[in-house]
């Protein structure tokens, strides 16, 4: 009993030490943060001022900016995968992971610490993006508790995506290879309810987009922010809140064990 408690205590402490390491990177080397935010911030401006009017009209949304922001929040959560993968793969390449593995620390604390720091970075991402949104006139209409719940869902998604990134970082061998994976995130983030409602997509594509984990979170967040949206009457779209909770859980159930196994198995 005592030994278990002590082990758990050390595991938490180890995770904290590792999370602090990655968070110091955000302070000392902010380009990682800026890199993740560059595309969403540009998207706020591009879609808010250039394409927004047309796209909103075409999609049947009155206020495209209110429609857009939840989509961009989720998009940013997805883009976080890139940073995670690159950080893990460069740690592996330089033997840093080997050093961690020869330490008498809790075996999965390195990965857990990375995911904690990613979620904290996600908070920063969301804060910056929300600030941008407020500047261009985005508002939430359902009060603070709902808005915070929406942000919570977005971070829950970020946590799940982080573990995909960690797993990819342990599997691929170079940052270049990681970048190739990252280019797959783009279509994944677009074929969802992010920029246009799924109802405006071709019939064969719409279900795919609706079942995209990103869509569930976006639709649920729109609902909680009180933003306009075009919700299709498919089961997934009608149960977006449930799916926004379940999808990340499923992803975590798959990728946490995969990543931990990969990290612990010595056959690299």
């Amino acid at each position: 009993m005592n030994a278990t408690v002590r082990r758990l205590g050390w595991a938490l402490s180890d995770t904290g030490v590792v999370a602090r390491r990655y968070l110091s990177h955000l302070v000392h080397k902010p380009d990682e943060l800026i890199g993740t935010l560059l595309i969403p911030v540009l998207a706020v401006l591009l879609f808010g001022f250039v394409f927004g009017e047309t796209m909103g009209a075409a999609a049947g949304v009155d206020d495209y900016r209110d429609f857009l922001m939840p989509g961009l929040f989720a998009l940013t959560m997805a883009f976080g995968i890139g940073n995670t993968t690159i950080a893990v793969v460069s740690d592996a390449g330089r033997g840093v992971i080997d050093r961690f593995r020869t330490l008498p620390m809790a075996p999965s604390a390195l990965l857990a610490g990375r995911s904690v720091s990613d979620v904290v970075a996600g908070v920063v991402d969301l804060a910056v993006l929300a600030g941008m949104g407020l500047l261009i006139g985005w508002r939430w209409n359902e009060g603070w508790p709902s808005a915070l719940a929406a942000l919570g869902l977005l971070l829950w998604l970020r946590l799940a995506f982080t573990w995909i990134g960690i797993y990819l970082g342990l599997v691929v061998r170079s940052p270049e290879a990681a970048m190739k994976f990252f280019s797959l995130v783009f279509p994944l983030a677009m074929v969802a309810d992010t920029f246009v409602p799924t109802s405006s997509m071709p019939g064969w594509l719409a279900p795919l987009a609706e079942w995209n984990p990103l869509s569930a979170t976006v639709v649920a967040a729109r609902d909680l922010f009180g933003s306009p949206g075009v919700v299709s009457d498919s089961w997934v779209a009608q149960n977006a809140l449930l799916m926004a909770l379940v999808w990340p859980l499923v992803l975590l159930a798959v990728f946490v064990p995969l990543a931990v196994h990969r990290y612990r198995s010595a056959a690299r």
């Binding site: 390491r21 110091s24 990177h25 000392h28 080397k29 390449g93 330089r94 033997g95 840093v96 080997d98 050093r99 020869t102 330490l103 008498p104």
Partner: peptide, 17 residues
């Protein structure tokens, strides 16, 4: 692991810190 130290071929350090 409590009794050994390892220094690999690359300096396994945090470059930023």
């Amino acid at each position: 692991r409590e009794r050994i130290g390892l220094t690999g071929q690359y300096a396994a350090l945090d470059e930023v810190l």
